[in-house]
Design a protein around this nucleic acid. Sequence first.
DNA 1: GCAATACATAAGCACTCACTTATGTGCTTC
DNA 2: GAAGCACATAAGTGAGTGCTTATGTATTGC
Lengths: 104, 104
Amino acid sequence: MIEDDIFRALADPTRRAIFEKLAEGSMNASTLREGMDISQPAMSQHLSVLTNAQLVRAQRQGRFVNYAVNPEGLALIAQWLTKYRAYWPARIEDLKILLKDMDQ
Amino acid sequence: MIEDDIFRALADPTRRAIFEKLAEGSMNASTLREGMDISQPAMSQHLSVLTNAQLVRAQRQGRFVNYAVNPEGLALIAQWLTKYRAYWPARIEDLKILLKDMDQ
DNA sequence: GCAATACATAAGCACTCACTTATGTGCTTC
DNA sequence: GAAGCACATAAGTGAGTGCTTATGTATTGC
């Protein structure tokens, strides 16, 4: 189940931080590492987990590998959420209608 | 970080199944167990994890404990998702406007 | 009070996770 | 083609996870 991979990938705070940084703009692994106090192999492993979860996309560019947010993973979470829209708080009641549109 | 607990809770397929069942209607732990091939302690432990993640609410009713979906956890995921609405696929572009409303 | 029921907690175990150090692979530049 | 850089992979380790069996706790009905 891909949901396993997505939720497990996001369960780690370091990985969420990496994802968050990538959301502000795609970049290579070394740039990602700047100011993050994380070893090179650890970063590589985290990016591998995020990629497998379809939360991140990798693309080689010469000696570097450019990493970018992959919307597919986010969409899958959104899709999962729609199953429980009956339980969403009333203050975001309006959202329910649009989420229903997403089902098709 | 509560997000750790939420995502980790949902990373387990058994727990998602329990949550899914609860979403169809609140019930006690024994009823939840029916047709699930899961031991009583395992169910109790899963419910504890879900409760700590604010995905489920527990309420004693005599000898039973009634469990119900807690919207708070779901709302927190939705809130987390809004941070990345720039990356959502175009086909749910409309959603972005409403998600923006959620921020306030 | 006592037995039965519903659930929680304790302790142990196999497995997984996130990290480490060490080494391998791919690309560029000279 | 040799050296250097960017990144991936391998192997090992301590901590955490999900399960088990055993036992504890709360509530009910007799």
